[in-house]
Design a protein around this nucleic acid. Structure first.
Length: 625
DNA sequence: GCGGATCAC
DNA sequence: TATGGTGATCCGC
């Protein structure tokens, strides 16, 4: 069938779109014997014409244009002499090579189709039929279902088209959490400081375990997997390598129920990376994969030959990241998830299309109430509140403000986000939403009082002292580990507020007062730390602190460090601060003195492993397996 | 610093 | 008929 040039162009353009529609988990296992061409057609036809599809199409066109710009830039660069860039790249590679550490044995373990596996334990009959877990979108599915092309992240109705017999189960999150805990109780014996990367993944450093038991890593992991299977009936896959990045890649090699060990040897690692498709590396997704492919980089080995272009095409951070991919470098440290510092707390939800202003406000209030719960649970306030909306067209917008104080109560969350919502309604008259979310950033931790005392501040006594039983200790060395090195992360050590008091007004008020006080203090500590002035614990008596003076980080003037004066001054200073007025009309183009953003990207600054967020796995409501 | 975009799970 | 929620990071402006 002959097609007109215009039709042909559409067909070509939709090739990338079809690839995109296949979803982000294309590289997952269980898809080897699937006819991707056929699956792609079914997904495409099931999606065609929907609002979701149209949005994906628009995004795909944008990406195609972005790639064209990248290619134009590359063509320009090819005309220049890039000897200097090549030399810089080589110097950087040499520098990285010096940092290579092959002394550690890092293991990444991954439970196979975790949620599905847990469901099968309860209903063995499921083993022989294709089924998925999740509602409108699949969170995971068993290997039977994967043979039909079903995978996580796929819309339920699309999965049904691929596999009409597919059984859909609802999520039982508590069940998965309990089972995950069983697994953790076993792996803790192999590395007491193992790192939960998500509900069904963990990193271990078994160097010490192997040394102590005089056992080879491969054998230790075989034993670990056998033990997990015997005791929990869950099968896991594992990767063994010299660092976390490689171990993660390796755990996918022999999935499911297998393991793969990459020798901790430079040549072996370089050879392994040389033929590895970029997409297999954590951090390279569908978009970056396409961009890299466009400039000629298909495998990690290809990175080297294009090293003189990469910084200019993708930025310094991406350059550094790619160089580490080429060399097969990664972190060798593994640490408990709780030791990572949380950066935000947020909630969002999807609902039937909504455009009525009153309804939208109700939804905002409900969202604020939901966020308050999370803020209380995690014991944080936020200095910044961010509103997220998704239109019925699937376009996403975010707006943020800085309230005059750190907030966490639904009332305040609502108060400060409502103007943003109103402004969006003006911006998009009659806007129809399908999602709304609120997120707090620039968090202020509600630290334990003795932590505050450690920094030299005193606390007003409250009735809560009765249930806190904190004795001001002079042993600073112990606290140093838990407070200085990981300032805001030890959520679990804070006493939680008794449930029965939560909604008692009097108690609530008291709690708020205390939180306010702690917040102000911790804000101050935060600011001082920010200004590079290390807070040195004063081992002497507390009264000396009160006589100290300090430069206010806001106005810069010296102030008495006494608690009362301190609080009063901070309040005054904060109220003086000009906060961006959200109700203000849009007079944006007035400011022509836009200061250029400081280019902070520093070569050699190791890019933090994307994703794998720490955070308390228990708090994850939804996690794809 | 803000908003958009990408990524992981 | 119809396509998720939580959290992190990076980039351009």
């Amino acid at each position: 069938m002959a097609e007109s040039p215009a039709e042909e162009k559409t067909v070509v353009e939709h090739e990338t779109l079809k690839y995109s529609l296949l979803g982000p988990s294309l590289t997952k296992s269980g898809q080897d014997n699937v006819d991707q061409q056929k699956v792609s057609e079914i997904i495409y036809n099931a999606s065609k014409g929907s609002k979701y599809f149209n949005n994906e199409e628009a995004r795909d066109k944008n990406l195609t244009q972005k790639i064209e710009r990248i290619l134009e830039k590359k063509a320009q660069l090819e005309k220049l002499d890039l000897a200097s860039d090549r030399r810089k790249a080589d110097e950087y590679i040499a520098e990285l090579e010096l940092s290579r550490d092959l002394s550690q044995v890092v293991v990444h373990i991954d439970c196979d189709a975790f949620y599905a596996a847990v469901e099968e334990l309860d209903r063995p009959g499921l083993k022989d039929v294709p089924f998925a877990v999740g509602g409108g979108v699949l969170t995971t599915c068993n290997y039977h279902a994967r043979k039909f092309g079903c995978r996580s992240g796929m819309a339920g109705f699309v999965a049904k088209k691929l596999c009409p017999e597919l059984i859909m189960l609802k999520l039982n999150f508590d069940k998965y959490t309990a089972k995950a805990q069983e697994v953790r109780e076993i792996i803790v014996d192999y590395d007491p400081r193992f790192e939960s990367a998500s509900i069904d993944e963990a990193y271990l450093n078994i160097t010490e375990y192997c040394r102590r038991n005089n056992i080879e890593p491969e054998e230790a992991v075989e034993q670990l997997r056998r033990e997990v299977h015997e005791k929990t009936k869950i099968t896991i896959s594992a990767g063994i390598a010299a660092n976390a990045k490689l171990a993660k890649i390796c755990s996918n090699k022999n999935k499911p129920n297998g393991q793969f060990s990459l020798p901790r040897d430079r040549n072996a690692i370089m050879a392994f990376m040389r033929d590895l498709p970029t997409r297999k590396v954590n951090g390279v997704g569908r978009v970056f994969e396409r961009e890299l492919d466009a400039v000629g980089v298909k495998t990690c080995g290809d990175i080297y030959q294009y090293r003189q272009y990469l910084a200019k095409l993708f930025g310094d951070k991406a350059f550094a990241y790619l160089m580490q991919c080429y060399l097969g470098l990664g972190r060798t440290t593994v640490q408990p998830a709780e030791e990572y510092e949380r950066k935000s707390v947020g909630t969002e939800s999807t609902f039937g299309e909504m455009s009525n202003t009153a309804e939208l406000r109700d939804k905002l209030l409900a969202t604020a109430q939901e966020l308050e719960k999370d803020m209380v649970r995690t014991q944080f306030k936020g200095r910044t509140i961010c509103l997220k909306v998704k239109l019925h067209t699937f376009e996403v917008f975010t707006r943020q403000v800085i309230p005059p104080k750190a907030i966490y109560l639904a009332h305040d969350l609502y108060k400060y986000s409502l103007p943003m919502l109103s402004k969006l309604e003006q911006e998009f008259p009659g806007m129809k939403l399908r999602l709304m979310g609120l997120r707090c950033t620039h968090l202020v931790s509600m630290k334990k009082p003795d932590t505050m005392a450690f920094f030299g501040f005193k606390r007003k006594p409250t009735s809560l002292d009765a249930i806190e039983s904190d004795s001001p200790s002079t042993d600073t060395s112990k606290r140093k580990a838990s407070t200085l090195s990981t300032p805001d992360s030890n959520e679990e050590q804070w006493e939680s507020w008794p449930d029965e008091l939560l909604f008692e007004d009097a108690e609530r008020q008291e709690r708020e007062d205390e939180m306010q006080e702690l917040e102000t203090l911790s804000q101050e500590i935060d600011k001082r730390r920010h200004h590079g002035k290390e807070i040195v614990p004063n081992p002497k008596k507390g009264e000396e602190v009160e006589e100290e003076w300090w430069d206010c980080p806001i106005c810069g003037r010296p102030q008495s460090a006494s608690e009362k004066a301190f609080n009063e001054h901070i309040d005054l200073c904060l109220s003086r601060q000009t906060i961006r007025d959200v109700v203000q009309e849009t007079t944006e183009s007035k400011s022509t003195d836009s200061t250029p953003a400081p280019k902070k990207a520093r070569l050699g600054n190791e890019k933090k492993e994307r994703g794998g967020l720490p955070g308390d796995p228990k708090q994850r409501r939804l996690c794809f397996g």
